[in-house]
Amino acid sequence: MNIFRLAGDMTHLLSILVLLLKIYATKSCSGISRKTQELYAIVFVARYLDLFTDFISVYNTFMKVVFIASSLAIVWCMRFHPMVRRSYDRELDTFRHYFLVGASFALALILHEKFTVQEIFWAFSIYLEAVAILPQLVLLQRSGNVDNLTGQYIFFLGAYRAFYILNWIYRYLTEPHFTRWIACVSGVVQTALYADFFYYYFISWKNNSKLKLPA
């Protein structure tokens, strides 16, 4: 564990806390893509199948359980909580996310480290995570303005990805056999998807104005 990896995990955790806070405090999920949240739930369940087969550390197990539980809880709230579900921007959240699931799974069948069920689901989760933010970014683009908590949620998610890239560079330089091409290439793609959002986030931060995305 290096400092970049820890910072990445913490900003990831923080992003989820911000999202839970928004939903809990405002009883609203406006501006949040349910499709992106469903994709994250699929990502975590598919990736952490090793919870039952490999023990790495208490920290690792704890974080995995937190990510699975929180992503399922968010999806549950958006689908079934009587007040939260009413605020869902259904008509703006029209990205065909099943297409992303299919494409990611097809890619995992072709590109994986080993041809085993666990490894294919792991690769699938990496590919799906890389593109899971797309429905969310499309929803923001359509709605135009972004409330503070939603903006911070996406900012922390992007920061998590950026820290993971620093972590891989650090590991590549310090560990003799660190090569994880599937995760690293997908991670760079995933982070690149945030570039546009980050640009407008920093502009609004610098001008001390409300975050707005161009139509």
Partner: peptide, 10 residues
């Protein structure tokens, strides 16, 4: 040389 296959990242 054994390849590391343990997924230690989240």
């Amino acid at each position: 040389d054994q390849q590391e296959s343990v997924k230690d990242e989240l």
